Simulated assay, not measured.
Amino acid sequence: MRREEVYGMSGSGTGGSAGVAGGKARFDEIYDRPDPRTYFRRLAPLEYEIPHHAQPVFRRAAAERAALDDGHPGRPAVLDVCCSYGINAALLNHDITLADLYGRYTSPARQELSTARLAEQDREFYAERRRPDAVPVFGLDVAAPAVRYALEVGLLDAAFTDDLEQGPPGPALRDALADVGLVTLTGGGSYVTARTFTALLDGARRPVWVSAFVLRTVSYQPVVDALAAHGLRTTLDASRTYPQRRFTDEREREFAVTAVRALGHDPAGREESGRFHSLHYESRPGTP
């Protein structure tokens, strides 16, 4: 079902419980907290690192996409799909690293702060580190507390919780799509399908590029086909993979090894060694 849109709002939420779907662990509870401290404490032992690998890739893509609109009014916005607490937005537009964020949000000194006090400190923290080449970033995620926090501390310029797997964009997201020039994704390929990308591209009014990091346990081909139907050509350097995180247990490892083999990948030295790995897909206008 589609949850409410979050547009210029702030607030808090409740936690849930983790589970396992198809052999891959889910971490639903870390996205329904009012701030990102639980997210980073839970993922730190698993060495979740894909946003670190995406940082230079997304910065380059955002700069190249902005150059395409040089001379036009308004810079094209980045829409980060499955944005959670705005991690990719933080790394894209600020002089910080993922290690900085782990250190900040797992720091014992910050565990006793109220969410309001943490948000106050975060607004100042990010404002001081804002890059001169920062671009507008919109966030899309069904986890309302997470996107609200990212919006409140200034990481996102707009945020939406439309579930495009279940229905079309609402009025606010439809309006925002007029400004989107780049869609980014890290890890959400396990949860969003071609339906989401089709809904976004159907509403686009500028040329849209897509830069996506997708786990090797997931087939991205349906999305590639949907993007091709909208005139986008997808490229992939299959020789390079990007570690995402350590497995939670042996069951996850077995699931991943079996899944990547089924998709024609070799898990040796990657999934067999204890980590999920992603591939990077870049989609831009052109002939497939």
Rank of each mutant, 00 (worst) to 15 (best):
M1C: 07
E282M: 01
P288Y: 07
E254R: 13
C83A: 14
G71S: 11
V6P: 05
R75Q: 14
A172R: 15
A212Q: 06
G23Q: 03
D122N: 13
A178Q: 08
D202L: 07
V135C: 07
S239E: 10
I30V: 15
E128Y: 01
A262M: 00
G71T: 12
T193E: 08
T217H: 02
Q121S: 10
E252G: 07
D95W: 06
G189N: 01
E128T: 05
P207L: 03
M9N: 00
A143P: 12
E128Q: 13
L182V: 09
Y85R: 12
G286R: 02
V208S: 02
S10E: 12
G71L: 10
A176E: 09
G231H: 05
F213T: 05
Y31T: 02
G264I: 07
L177Y: 04
P285D: 02
A25N: 14
G154Y: 14
P56M: 06
F138C: 00
L156D: 08
L201V: 11
D80Q: 10
L79D: 09
V210L: 09
H94D: 08
P169F: 00
E254M: 06
R131N: 12
R174D: 12
D28K: 06
V210T: 11
G188H: 02
T234Y: 04
S273K: 01
T115S: 05
R59E: 11
A25W: 15
P132T: 05
A25C: 11
L182Q: 07
A21D: 06
E49R: 14
G139K: 09
Q121M: 14
A226R: 05
D70V: 14
W209T: 10
G286V: 03
F197T: 00
S107N: 15
G274N: 08
V81I: 13
R117A: 14
A62L: 08
A119V: 11
A77P: 10
G74A: 14
F247R: 04
R129F: 01
L279I: 10
D163C: 04
G181V: 08
R206N: 05
P76C: 12
L91Y: 06
C82K: 01
D80E: 15
Y105D: 04
P285R: 10
Q244M: 08
T106A: 12
G13A: 11
R129P: 06
A119K: 12
R110H: 15
G103E: 09
R59Y: 09
G203Y: 08
Q166C: 03
R129M: 05
H280F: 09
A226T: 06
Q166S: 13
A134E: 08
T184A: 05
G188M: 03
R42W: 14
A99K: 11
V135T: 13
A150W: 05
A158P: 09
Y220H: 10
Q55C: 10
E152V: 13
A172D: 15
L227M: 15
D100W: 08
D202C: 09
A268W: 13
A18S: 15
R41G: 02
D249Y: 11
R65Y: 00
E128A: 15
G13N: 06
Q166W: 00
V183Q: 03
E252R: 04
P45Y: 13
F58Y: 11
D175H: 14
M9F: 00
P132R: 04
E124V: 14
D35Y: 07
V137S: 05
T287C: 05
R130G: 01
T198E: 11
F160A: 01
G187Y: 02
D100E: 13
E49V: 08
L91N: 10
D70H: 12
L118R: 01
